Amino acid sequence: MTALLEITLIGGQAARGIESHFNNTTALNTAIYLIMGITILAMTILVAWLLIQSWKQAFDVAPAFAWGIRFGIALFVLGALEGGAMVTQEPTPSVPVRRCQSSGGS
């Protein structure tokens, strides 16, 4: 449900023709962005809990398949944490890892 809510909010902002992320131009846009953040945080916490549970219980599948499930869940949590780190930074027009401009040029 949280992913559906977030996708709906992103689609709604796109339908309005405005940015969905890092948009604090009005109270409505700020509220939508905040709700998106809360929903993805809730989903990440739930998925992290599922990852912990996957270590506690045995799967009734081949061991390689069980490891694939755990690895996939761990990648999601890691990616979500990276997203959390991105929103705590001041938005800049550059990509810090590659030191290149995101709006063209090199």
Rank of each mutant, 00 (worst) to 15 (best):
T88V: 13
I40S: 12
I35H: 00
N24C: 06
T8E: 06
M1Y: 08
G104C: 07
A58L: 05
L81A: 11
I10D: 12
I35S: 06
A58C: 02
G11R: 07
L46F: 11
T26E: 01
I69K: 14
A14E: 05
L34E: 13
A74R: 04
E19F: 07
L4I: 08
A62P: 04
A62L: 06
L50Q: 15
G11A: 10
I18C: 05
A15G: 14
I69D: 07
V77E: 02
A58Q: 12
G68V: 02
L81W: 04
W55P: 00
L4M: 04
R16Q: 14
A3W: 06
G68F: 00
M43D: 12
I45P: 11
T2E: 13
Q13W: 00
E90T: 15
E19V: 06
L81Q: 03
V87M: 06
Y33Q: 01
R16Y: 03
F76M: 03
T88C: 10
P63R: 14
A14W: 13
M86E: 11
A74Y: 02
G72L: 05
I7P: 09
I7G: 10
S94M: 13
M43G: 09
A64R: 13
I10Y: 09
A62W: 04
E19M: 14
Q13R: 05
L78Y: 13
L41H: 01
G84H: 06
N23R: 12
S20K: 04
V97E: 05
T25F: 01
I45Y: 09
A66F: 09
A66L: 07
A42T: 07
M36H: 08
A48W: 07
A58V: 03
E82M: 14
F22M: 15
G68W: 02
I32E: 03
W49Y: 14
A74N: 01
D60S: 11
R99C: 03
I10V: 15
L75Q: 04
I52N: 05
G17H: 01
Q89P: 03
I38T: 03
A85C: 12
A66M: 05
A48C: 09
V61M: 10
S103W: 09
A74C: 10
A80D: 00
L46M: 07
G11D: 07
Q89A: 15
T88H: 07
F22H: 12
Q89D: 11
M1D: 09
A64N: 08
W49G: 15
W67M: 05
I40P: 08
L81F: 15
A62C: 02
F65I: 07
Q57P: 01
I40Q: 12
E90V: 15
M43Q: 15
A15P: 07
G72Q: 03
T8I: 09
A14P: 02
F76G: 02
L81E: 00
S54G: 03
V87F: 02
I38A: 11
G104V: 06
T88P: 05
A31N: 02
T26G: 00
A15E: 06
I45F: 13
H21L: 14
